[in-house]
């Protein structure tokens, strides 16, 4: 207790509580709840059976009412702990409910029906993780396909982005040539061109070149990101030109200079771009929604949103698939968060 409370109640200057200390801790603890709470709640909910999800008030952990097969009854019966008129309690199975009276039997002696007021019985519950929420969408629905599509789009787009952007950044940072400033200007000016502004003509171009309903139609428009070129160029500018000269004196071809000298030295920036790109492409929604109209091509984001938009909302599956969709990003967050936050703070990019 000592160390923990000293840590938690550490105060500014150590002389009594300043109001700002209280604000700070309220803000931080409140932030912790508000920022992580919803995702954690989602995670717990995703393990609940449909019946448990429909419960109000909800429980945090997934509980289910225990059921038992009783001789003479086709369906499994729910188990309750019932207070009997004689004051004792006994675990009984409910056969049916009529009004406020529950007809129950002893699972071990199913012959005799015991009537219990519903106020006098409480369900016997155990914790149970409804893992079928996860397995069924994969088995019965197309979620395996969606997952694969998402992985394919993310990995391919990221690889192409890295290659194409780093080549362009190399040209723009280490060569003097005609048109360089024009290219730079175009890239800077289009840093902010959002999809919403060009989605109609872009769609027509994609369908004109036959990439409608094709994962490449999702991938290609995203790979030439001005942002990526910009990050990499800024970084490559810090690589000394003398290294390039030295490599030229060492008989390296320009291509060798690119991949043997510049790429390894730009590794930190490439890593940042790779992480960004993975998160961007994994999370992309509107563009895949426009380009992909066949179920077997959906990415996770599209599949999930369409599935959630259907009339008969099956929350137990949706919650589980949302967790699956969240996992890569959460992994990125856990392991690479520091990388990203310093990257953003350094470049102002998201």
């Amino acid at each position: 207790m000592g160390a923990a409370s000293r840590f938690i109640f550490r105060r500014r200057g150590g002389k009594g509580w300043h109001w700002t200390d209280i604000v700070t801790w309220v803000w931080l603890v409140g932030g912790l709840l508000i920022m992580f709470g919803p995702a954690v709640w989602l995670g717990f909910s995703s393990f609940k059976s449909p019946a448990a999800l429909a419960e109000f008030p909800p429980t945090i952990l997934p509980y289910v009412t225990q059921q038992v097969n009783v001789e003479g009854y086709e369906q499994p019966l729910a188990l309750y702990e019932a207070s009997l008129p004689d004051g004792s309690t006994q675990v009984l199975a409910e056969v049916r409910r009529i009004g406020i009276v529950s007809q129950m039997v002893d699972p071990n002696a199913p012959g005799e029906i015991i009537r219990v007021n519903i106020g006098d019985r409480t369900p016997v519950r155990t914790m149970s993780f409804a893992t079928e929420n996860y397995t069924e969408p994969f088995v019965q629905f197309d979620f395996v396909q969606y997952l694969w599509n998402s992985v394919f789009v993310t990995v391919t787009a990221t690889l192409i982005t890295l290659v194409v952007n780093s080549m362009a950044a190399f040209a723009l940072s280490k060569y003097e040539f005609k048109g360089r400033s024009v290219a730079m200007l175009i890239i800077l000016a289009t840093l902010m061109v959002p999809l919403s502004v060009i989605m109609v003509p872009l769609y027509s171009i994609i369908s004109a070149i036959g990439l409608f309903n094709n994962l490449w139609g999702v991938i290609l428009p995203t790979v030439a990101t001005p942002t990526g070129v910009f990050i990499l160029r800024q970084y490559m500018l810090t690589i000394p030109d003398e290294l390039i000269d030295a490599a030229r004196m060492d008989k390296a071809s320009e291509w060798q200079i690119y991949w043997r000298i510049v790429l390894p030295l730009a590794a930190p920036a490439l890593a940042v771009l790779a992480i960004f790109s993975v998160v961007w492409r994994w999370n992309d929604f509107l563009w895949p929604l426009i380009v992909l109209s066949r179920r077997e091509l959906y990415t996770l984001q599209v599949g999930l949103s369409i599935y959630a938009g259907e009339l008969n909302v099956q929350w137990h599956f949706i919650l589980a698939m949302t967790v699956v969709t969240m996992i890569p990003v959460v992994l990125v967050f856990i392991f690479l968060q520091r990388f990203i936050t310093t990257g953003i703070a350094g470049t102002g990019l998201k």
């Binding site: 080549m167 362009a168 890239i187 289009t190 502004v197 060009i198 171009i205």
Partner: peptide
């Protein structure tokens, strides 16, 4: 060497032209 610069820049600019500049223009 300057030809190589164009070579390095080309793929990005090509993709960029087709999927960003062209839509922007024909919009």
């Amino acid at each position: 060497i300057s030809g190589m610069a164009i070579f390095f820049l080309a793929p990005n600019m090509l993709i960029f032209g087709i999927f960003v500049l062209l839509p922007l223009a024909i919009n």
